[in-house]
Design a binder for these strands. Structure first.
Lengths: 235, 235
DNA sequence: GTTCTTTCGCTACGAGTCGTAGCGTAACTG
DNA sequence: CAGTTACGCTACGACTCGTAGCGAAAGAAC
């Protein structure tokens, strides 16, 4: 889902003196035009162009990596003008967020009948996702940019990180239904536990693949799951 | 330790196998500990310039982040010419690796008498390190660059990642001496376990701080340590 | 001391990218 | 039809990168 710049936003241009590069993107960019209230009046934006741009972004990411990805390259590969990109996304960062976010939608919590099997399945899915070149090229670069750009950081969390916490919640709920986990005592503590589990799984797998550069084998997954299951299951 | 590309030494960059990060850096003269072949003949490289450049890099990283860091800026801040930077480091990546690697040297395994206390202490140290702006700005950006640049990836592992695995090894050894952990059965399995523990601690804390953007509180550290201690200690 | 070697700061350069502006045209709405 | 908006194209200024050339400085070797 593109950023959907407000059609009539005279604001634009924030010179910010000594900051030509990243950071400090425009403050106002609301207009979730998806609501469909205001029917556009003039020529509609080409949905095909959106799709071509996002696909071209993913392809270029896989081929050239983050550093080699340029807006001009994406534009020509998608068959559109560079200005068309900037009409939809304020900068490379936001474009890549949208281009990559969809990759994470395929993750599902399978409910295989045991907490161990569920965890191992999710870890395997995540490992497969992290094995794809476009994911590798984009994920850490996006996280790195998000450190300095709060707007982008929020956007990454909303589009990529937070949606995946559902996996932990679903797995926990299923395990509680099976009696493998204690029921929640209070909501706050449960929420914190979800956060811990999520950071542990996501962080560890990412670190293993992207930083240590080692593959995720079934054997590794088994041992990592041992680690997770220790204090969770009733002993 | 600067890249120190000798004008007539195409081989160079031999890992030297002795700890690359610790110890006073460029205190030794420009000519690295090269195997005694080339005694410097002309004007030696200024060690003060090395220090000023690395310090300027850390300062600029903290202020401007990775995207805002330019070689020209670092040069002028360090009071040297831009060409002087390129005589020592082939590119921004390598410069930042050296500038940041020293930050990790302060991590120590305290041996507080219990495995739990040791883990919590190391997590707290790592959390403090990740709270520093220059670390935040550099770490993920370096990891991201390392995805595409194998040379850089190796360099990051040698200078930053691998040296910290000693913490896990030391903690394990101490816990085994106390009887908190079983002695190692075989070396290979022990090595894999060290890798898992390391990826889990480093990855989780990094994900918590840099991606989720949540602080590392003592309460969080306690719960995370519960997770780690589950299957490790004798039940 | 002198000579030799290397580094130093400086300036300038070509190549590349960014993000914007202007223009004429295409597409869709009322 | 007119009105409105998106589109492709070209061009632009600002910026960064990494390199090259120069004269001068600072030691090392003699």
């Amino acid at each position: 889902m593109p950023a959907a710049q407000p059609p009539a936003s005279p604001e634009s241009t924030v010179p910010t003196s000594t900051d030509p590069a990243s950071s400090a993107p425009e403050a106002a960019h609301p207009t979730p035009e998806a609501v469909g209230t205001a029917r556009a009046k003039g020529r509609p934006r080409s949905a095909a162009a959106d799709r071509a741009i996002l696909a071209a972004t993913r392809e270029a990411l896989a081929e050239l990596g983050w550093g080699g990805l340029t807006m001009g390259h994406v534009a020509s590969r998608a068959g559109v003008a560079k200005t068309t990109l900037y009409r939809r996304w304020p900068s490379k960062n936001e474009l890549v967020v949208d281009a990559v976010a969809t990759l994470f939608d395929d993750l599902v919590m399978p409910d295989l009948g045991s907490l161990r099997a569920d965890i191992e399945a999710v870890v395997a899915q995540f490992a497969d996702l992290l094995a794809r070149p476009e994911t590798q090229a984009a994920l850490l670069a996006l996280f790195a940019e998000g450190i300095r750009d709060r707007q982008l950081h929020r956007r990454i969390r909303e589009a990529i990180v937070d949606p995946q916490k559902r996996l932990v919640r679903q797995g926990r709920t299923a395990a509680q239904a099976r009696g493998e986990l204690e029921p929640d005592t209070d909501a706050g503590s449960a929420c914190e536990e979800v956060d811990i589990i999520f950071d542990t799984i996501a962080g560890t797998v990412e670190h293993r693949v992207l930083v240590s550069g080692e593959p995720i084998t079934p054997e590794w997954t088994r041992r990592f799951t041992d680690l997770l299951l220790g204090p969770l299951t009733t002993c």
